[in-house]
Simulated scan of single mutants.
Amino acid sequence: MREALPEAELLVVGVTSPLRVGVYVEGRLADSFESEEKTSKALPPILHDLRYKYDLKALYYAKGPGSFMAIKVVYVMLKTFAIALDIPLLATDAFAFNGNRPIKAVGRSCFVKKGGEVLIEKECDTPDGRFELPERLDTVTFTEASEPLYVLPAV
């Protein structure tokens, strides 16, 4: 008889490098992974290994703003995983993981959050690109509206 796996929830913050993945057991950070590799290369083996180490109950992720390609890759992989495992995929904006600081965009521009709205500022100091996994997973900040938050400058 196979031993029961511990129940867990995953949080993926993949809007910029490094990719960060947190495993939460009973709402507390129990394990974490970080990779400087491209998201498309780093995330599949992490998800594979965690699938067989934990009984996954929900997936959470930072839906943007940030790297367009990284966000897209994270969303597609997590959405596929959520459908295959029949578990929810929930999302929040990336500002929840960087202390609401500006997030680098293209060139000298950055994404900022003002009055609940995400905007692009043309000239800003180089933003501090650190994103942190919280010690406790506050699921209240996440919603079922999990589609990526693409904030693109006008062409």
Rank of each mutant, 00 (worst) to 15 (best):
L29F: 08
K41G: 01
D86H: 06
P148E: 12
F33L: 06
Y60N: 06
L5R: 14
V21H: 09
T139W: 07
K63G: 01
F81K: 02
V112E: 02
L133I: 05
L59Y: 11
P18W: 06
L90Q: 04
T16P: 00
L56I: 15
V23D: 05
S146N: 14
F97M: 01
V25I: 13
A70P: 00
V25A: 05
R2H: 14
S109I: 09
P65D: 14
K122H: 13
V25T: 12
A58G: 08
E26D: 12
E37C: 05
D31E: 15
P102H: 05
K38R: 15
P88V: 12
T143H: 10
G22F: 05
L10W: 04
A62D: 03
P88M: 04
E135C: 04
L90I: 02
E36Q: 13
E37G: 02
R20G: 06
V23W: 02
R130G: 14
Y75Q: 03
R101T: 08
A154C: 11
G64L: 13
S35H: 03
V106F: 11
G129W: 00
K57W: 13
A154Q: 12
V151P: 09
Y60D: 01
E9F: 09
E117N: 11
F142D: 00
E36A: 13
A84W: 09
R51G: 00
P88N: 11
V151K: 00
S67H: 08
K57A: 09
P134V: 05
M1V: 10
R136D: 00
T80N: 13
V13K: 02
D31T: 00
A84T: 11
G99I: 01
V25G: 08
A91V: 08
V140Y: 14
V106T: 13
V155A: 13
E36Y: 07
S109L: 10
N98A: 05
Y60S: 05
I46S: 10
L78A: 09
T143R: 12
P102Y: 01
D125A: 15
L137F: 07
L137C: 08
V23H: 07
T80L: 11
L89D: 03
G115W: 10
G64A: 12
L47K: 12
S146M: 04
L10T: 00
A96H: 14
R51T: 14
L119S: 00
L11R: 05
Y75D: 03
Y54C: 11
I83F: 15
A82C: 10
K63F: 04
G129L: 01
Y61G: 08
H48K: 10
V73W: 02
T143D: 06
V106A: 14
I71P: 02
L89F: 01
L43T: 06
V73L: 13
S35E: 08
